[in-house]
Amino acid sequence: MENSIEVVEIQKTFQQQTAIEDVSFQVKKGEIFGLLGPSGSGKTTTIKMLTGELGQTVGKIKVLGMESDQIGSAEFKAKIGILSDNSSLYERLTIYDNLKLFCRLYNAPMRRIDAILRDVNLHGEKSKTVSKLSKGMKQRVLLAKALIHEPELVFLDEPTSALDPGNAAHIHQGLRRLNEAGTTIFITTHNMEEASALCDRVTFLNHGKIVELDRPGELQYKYSTHAFHVETFDGEQLVINNTPDQAERIKELIATNQMKAIHTDEPTLGQVFLKVTGEELV
């Protein structure tokens, strides 16, 4: 399958401090790829390198078939959409006027404004002044701004970090629809639930290094103890290994009507991160 992003052994050094060290990964066309890590782990720095806002100190980056010398060109910028960590809007202007500016800068047809406003559920409020909007609404306008030109690849830097669960769910819904329509999504987050629910594949970044990369389900399986947690009607809690020699035991519990509940013991993605790094995700 074609790759939208290819990163080979990149490194980024600020003055003395190494922010990114020996990072390599690929993002497949059409997938939702999550870059996960605590604050300061290097997520924003990675996005800035992928979008051409920062140059890498060492290593190779290829995005949409373009190499470092083309990344950051007007042609490149027209193909990607960005929702940065501290993006903002023109507060004195209306939602419509904000989007109109970017519609014209990206040379997108004007009818896109109404279409994208409907997608982010703001069609009724387009003549509202941005300064009067709630945080969640502003974030939706910013998402609309990032998508106005129908980019084939979008970069979202913690798009829901400041939002309540209702607004976050709204954005997740929009992102899933967008992905179904074929857009590749590169998202950073420190919210593990968001990542499990949304991403096809995730990579864990810790102190600028990649510590894991796989499908969320695979990572959970990999770090589980492969045992079942069983509760009987007598109130007994049993741990039964998922091995052939234990099959009879489980069968018997069911046959004798003692099985109240049975769970696998896969850790959540957050617990996996904790196991891999020994650090909490905050």
């Binding site: 979008t51 806002e53 007007a74 042609e75 910028k77 027209a78 960005i82 940065s84 501290n86 993006s87 903002s88 809007l89 023109y90 507060e91 970017f102 800068l105 990206y106 040379n107 701004k145």
Partner: peptide
């Protein structure tokens, strides 16, 4: 207001 960044990210 960090709006310049949005302009620079555009073409």
């Amino acid at each position: 207001k960090k709006t310049l960044r949005g302009l620079i990210q555009s073409p």
